[in-house]
Computed example of a mutant assay.
Amino acid sequence: MPIVKNTKPATFIFEDDGLTPNNVLPLVIYKRALDLDSGAPERTIEELFGANGWGQDIWRNGIYDYLHYHATVHEVLGIARGHGRVRFGGDAGREFELDAGDVAILPAGTGHQCLRSTDDFSVVGAYPPGAKMQVTRPTPENHAAALKTIPVVKLPDSDPVAGRDGPLVKLWRG
């Protein structure tokens, strides 16, 4: 398991822009939170997420280079290698630099898009138990449907980085 070095995350809330619904819950970003095993950082992140109840449909890849969101499930992105510039919140959102050891936790509906990345950019994504992930593009029709599904997405029982007593649980349950 990685050493969790920083359990105080930054939070950001994005407004609904008419196409990307975003969420009233904050995007949560842990910067330089994980001390990763240089030999197998992807596996290290997968084990951490799984141990903290975010083991559904774990994947390894990058982040899509087009704007999208997930209206049926929350998502966690752990940066295993490299560096990427990612915009969260839709076209009117905010750009973030993400590096190995960073973790972003996106509430359902949060727009995201990789704007550029290093060749070695490697991301581990996962979801808490519940509905299956669906990639949704920002269109008027999808926005209308998402406004119905996002409010009923179940809140996770744990923080994918810090477990049941982690900051995410308190932040999202208020």
Rank of each mutant, 00 (worst) to 15 (best):
His83Trp: 14
Leu48Ala: 04
Ala145Gln: 14
Ser38Pro: 07
Asp165Thr: 09
Lys5Asp: 01
Ala40His: 12
Trp59Arg: 13
Leu48Trp: 03
Asp91Pro: 10
Val123Ile: 14
Val76Thr: 11
Val24Arg: 13
Thr11Phe: 12
Pro9Ser: 14
Asp35Leu: 12
Asn23Ile: 06
Asp16His: 07
Pro138Phe: 11
Ala40Arg: 15
Ile79Val: 15
Trp54Asp: 02
Val4Tyr: 00
Glu47Leu: 12
Phe49Val: 07
Gly82Thr: 11
Lys148Ala: 15
Val76Trp: 03
Arg116Pro: 01
Ser38Ala: 12
Arg173Thr: 12
Pro128Trp: 08
Ala51Pro: 10
Gly101Glu: 04
Asn142Ile: 03
Glu75Tyr: 01
Val152Lys: 14
His83Gly: 01
Lys154Trp: 00
Thr118Tyr: 10
Pro41Asn: 08
Ala71Lys: 13
Leu48Tyr: 01
Gly174Thr: 10
Pro128Ser: 09
Ala92Leu: 10
Thr44Met: 09
Gly166Arg: 04
Gly90Gln: 06
Ala100Lys: 06
Glu42Val: 13
Ala100Phe: 03
Thr20Lys: 07
Asp17Asn: 12
Gln56Pro: 03
Leu168Met: 15
Glu97Tyr: 09
Gly89Ala: 12
Ile58Cys: 10
Ser158Asp: 01
Asp65Cys: 06
Leu115Arg: 10
Ala146Asn: 04
Arg137Met: 08
Pro2Met: 02
Val153Arg: 03
Val152Asn: 12
Gly50Tyr: 03
Val161Trp: 07
Leu168Gln: 10
Pro21Lys: 04
Pro138Ile: 13
Ala51Val: 06
Val135Tyr: 12
Gly53Lys: 02
Gly109Glu: 09
Leu48His: 10
Gly39Val: 01
Arg164Phe: 05
Pro21Gln: 09
Arg137Phe: 14
Gly55Ser: 02
Leu27Cys: 03
Leu67Val: 09
Gly125Cys: 12
His68Ser: 05
Asp16Leu: 08
Ile45Tyr: 05
Ala146Asp: 06
Leu25Cys: 09
Arg60Thr: 14
Glu97Met: 12
Thr20Pro: 00
Gly111Gln: 02
His112Tyr: 10
Pro41Ala: 10
Ala33Gly: 03
Gly84His: 07
Gly101Asn: 10
Thr11Ile: 15
Gly18Trp: 05
Ile58Tyr: 01
Arg137Gly: 04
Gly84Asp: 07
Pro151Gly: 01
Ala33Phe: 07
Lys154Pro: 05
Asp157Ile: 02
Val24Thr: 05
Arg137Cys: 03
Ala108Lys: 04
Gly18Ala: 01
Pro151Phe: 00
Glu141Asp: 14
Ile63Trp: 02
Asp17His: 05
Pro26Arg: 11
Glu141Phe: 02
Ser122Cys: 15
Ala162Ile: 07
Asp17Met: 11
Asp102Asn: 07
Gln113Tyr: 08
Val103Arg: 02
Pro167Glu: 15
Leu36Asn: 00
Trp172Glu: 11
Lys148Asn: 11
Thr72Phe: 05
Gly90Ile: 05
Leu67Gly: 14
Leu36Tyr: 00
Trp59Gly: 07
Ala104Pro: 11
Ala162Tyr: 02
Glu46Ser: 14
Arg164Ile: 02
Lys148Arg: 10
Tyr64Gln: 05
Gly90Ala: 10
Val169Tyr: 05
Thr136Ala: 04
Gly55Gln: 00
Ala108Val: 04
Tyr69Met: 07
Lys5Ser: 09
Ala162Ser: 15
Ala162Phe: 05
Ser117Met: 04
Gly101Ile: 05
His83Glu: 14
Tyr127Trp: 14
Phe14Tyr: 15
Ile63Cys: 14
Asp102Ser: 08
Lys148Ile: 07
